[in-house]
Design a protein around this nucleic acid. Structure first.
Length: 290
DNA sequence: GCCCAGGGAATCG
DNA sequence: CGATTCCATGGG
């Protein structure tokens, strides 16, 4: 694993007395691309930000805002403790993306990957709450991003804990016992019954999320697809965005096109163990073409 | 009306 | 097995 040295973290206070942290000298972190690349559904751009870019949303039960300020990353409504406990990992700051990107593009047959990595440079794979990730990507199936965001917002408003003007993603215990009927307020259609099945199987322990971390990825896939509504694609997204498994490789319609057109015989060998990051670069690149 | 959306389950041959 | 069809909903 290309892990990285920890950036210095300075605890500060805004004029209004709210805590925030500055993470000094963060490279390869593009705030807009990271929060707008389809891996998360609860972050939105902050209007009239004085910074180059700023996105806000709820992560791990706290409403935060992430801004790029020259060389530094600022995280508002965040203490140093919360940053170290949750957000360093959440934001993908424990991996060395410069090294990873160099490795992904070093092979002679990486020409498309080089173009993709250049266009998508600065995207970080987030490490989101695992239940939130599974549930969100169940909702994502055969759906588009604006509507996915709407359904998840209604899920939070109806079943999650209120946090200021916003809502946390509902926990498993908050959802325990819900029926498809209860979920009709989401207007998620046929996905309601899949959410119910996920809650049941995970709450009962039939699917053991805690055990997945220690499993070889093939076993982890098998564990996740026990849930109705979780197939290959949703399982890969869950492993990549919710379990830190950067070797997971979600194949959606865009990536399918890329593979058929450019990498008929599979990705170059140099992407091994980082297929998920290669996938994210290719996805972003292809979607923003033209 | 049509098509598609970060798919998957059920069904059919 | 692989291929096709249906699934709810909303925006273009």
């Amino acid at each position: 694993m290309f892990t990285t040295e920890k950036n210095a973290v300075i605890q500060k206070t805004t004029e209004n007395g709210l805590p925030y942290v500055a993470i000094e000298g963060v490279r390869e972190f593009d705030v807009s691309k990271t929060f707008d690349c389809g891996q998360c559904f609860r972050f939105e751009p902050v209007e009239n930000t004085p910074y180059e870019s700023e996105f806000a949303g709820v992560a791990y039960g706290r409403f935060i805002s992430v801004a790029r300020d020259k060389e530094d990353l600022l995280i508002f409504n965040c203490t140093k403790e919360f940053f170290e406990e949750k957000l360093r990992h959440f934001l993908g700051l424990d991996l060395d993306y410069e090294n990873i990107r160099r490795t992904l593009t070093e092979s002679t047959d990486s020409s498309y990957l080089r173009a993709a990595a250049e266009s998508a440079k600065g995207i970080r794979i987030l490490n989101q709450n695992r239940w939130e990730t599974i549930c969100s990507f169940i909702i994502s199936q055969n759906n588009n991003i604006p509507r996915i965001m709407g359904i998840i917002e209604r899920l939070c408003e109806n079943f999650g804990t209120k946090i200021g003007d916003d809502y946390a993603f509902p926990t498993l215990s908050q959802l325990k016992g819900v029926t498809a009927e209860d979920l009709s307020v989401l207007r998620a259609g046929f996905r309601n019954k899949y959410i119910v099945d996920a809650v049941e199987k995970i709450a009962s322990g039939e699917v053991d999320l805690g055990a997945i971390y220690d499993m070889p990825i093939e076993n982890a896939r098998q564990e996740l697809i026990k849930i109705k509504g979780v197939g290959a694609k949703v399982a890969e997204c869950t492993l990549l965005y919710g379990f830190g498994r950067v070797e997971a490789f979600p194949v959606d319609v865009w990536v399918k096109r890329i593979m058929a057109e450019l990498y008929e015989n599979g990705l170059p060998e140099c992407t091994k163990n980082y297929e998920g990051i290669a996938q994210q670069y290719l996805f972003h690149w292809r979607r923003n073409l033209k």
